[in-house]
């Protein structure tokens, strides 16, 4: 009997740990522990035929063996479970190099993105955002800005004029604004000094189009008026603006210029953002890029807006938002902005 038990122990010890799957393991369970014909069951059943002295000893041996076999089963079951899960997971392998699935992805226009940045920078310096009409009267676009009829400056901007709507005896001649500056007048007519505003908006020019000129583009006007606003303040504010927009290394310079609505007037150049003043094709080897016209608000402009003379001084500036956007994103052709071409628009 003891020999029998030893034999069972040997075969269980070799067969159970090598069972290939749960079915085979179940078969082995029946073979060794089955209630009907299990090898161990048979041993226990035959105990009663043994002498009492052997009965106890063999019984103990057999029960010990049961414990061993059950342990083997539990270990193998656990092992099989683990490998089965593993093989299921393995089957669920995904190709991580396949492109990810994208939902429809929207974009804002590059000029909108830069406009928002501009608004944010000026807001941090206390400037509010104001808009104005795009169809203007001659008075707001020219006369109020100290550009009387026959003034040579009316030549500097080529203007789209509008026909009088039919059947209407219209007194002020209408035009498409050539700059955002009329909003200076409109705003000052309704608000007193001190004030700080920027005016982003569309303007129109009658001219031949090419990669850097279009008949329609966006400008940003700036106006700051207070008791003692100076050229030094202007330099402080625009330097801060360009540094925040293009990076801390940017430098500015002021060159004398002429605008009827500012005195003194200047043109603002920034150090070339592509070559940092070394001279390249973008800055035409000069190291500088012309970006902005500006000056101290002309007394005639304050007068046109209804301000009392001598009570205030201020600066005004204007720059092309399209042009700044082109610089920032290295866009070669201004006409792309109105192309509606998704292949262009989705790059931003």
């Amino acid at each position: 009997m003891v020999k029998e038990i030893k034999k069972i122990e040997d075969s269980a010890g070799s067969e159970i740990p090598t069972a290939k799957n749960r079915e085979e393991l179940e078969e082995l369970r029946i073979k060794f522990l089955g209630r009907e014909k299990g090898a161990l069951t048979l041993i226990l059943r035959s105990l009663k035929t043994l002498p009492d002295a052997d009965k106890k000893r063999v019984g103990e041996e057999a029960n010990k063996l049961r414990g061993v076999i059950e342990g083997l089963f539990a270990a193998r079951t656990e092992e099989l479970k683990r490998t089965e899960t593993e093989s299921i997971l393995k089957k669920e392998w995904l190709d991580v190099t396949r492109p990810g699935k994208k939902g429809p992805h929207g974009h804002l226009h590059p000029v909108t993105l830069v406009r928002r940045e501009v608004e944010k920078i000026f807001a941090s310096m206390g400037f509010g955002v104001v808009e104005g009409p795009e169809v203007e009267t001659e008075w707001y676009n020219f006369d109020a800005l100290n550009i009387p009829v026959d003034h040579p400056a009316r030549d500097m901007v080529d203007t789209f004029f509008l026909k009088n709507p039919k059947g209407k005896n219209q007194s002020p001649k209408l035009l498409l604004r050539t700059h955002t500056s009329p909003v200076q007048i409109r705003y000052m007519q309704k608000h007193n000094s001190p004030l700080r505003i920027i005016v982003p908006g569309r303007v129109y020019r009658y001219e031949a189009t090419d990669a850097s000129h279009d008949i329609q583009f966006q400008q940003v006007e700036g106006l700051m008026v207070d008791k003692n606003v100076s050229v030094a303040n202007f330099k402080g504010v625009v330097l801060e603006f360009f540094k925040k927009l293009f990076g801390m290394n940017v430098e500015i310079r002021l060159r004398p210029s002429f605008f009827p609505f500012t005195e003194p007037s200047f043109e603002i150049d920034i150090s070339c953002i592509a070559c940092n003043k070394k001279g390249c094709s973008i800055c035409k080897k000069t190291g500088w890029l012309e970006v902005m016209g500006a000056g101290m608000v002309h007394p005639k402009v304050f007068e046109a807006a209804g301000y009392a003379p001598g009570n205030q001084q201020g600066f005004a500036f204007g720059f092309g938002l399209d042009r700044v956007t082109m610089m920032k994103y290295k866009i070669p052709d201004i006409r792309l902005f109105h192309s509606g071409d998704i292949r262009f628009l989705k790059q931003f």
Binding site: M125, D226, L254
Partner: peptide, 15 residues
């Protein structure tokens, strides 16, 4: 103009 030092406005303004 290059000799004029940039000065940020000393007063704040709430738009």
């Amino acid at each position: 103009y290059e000799k004029i030092k940039p000065v940020l406005p000393s007063t704040s303004h709430i738009p």
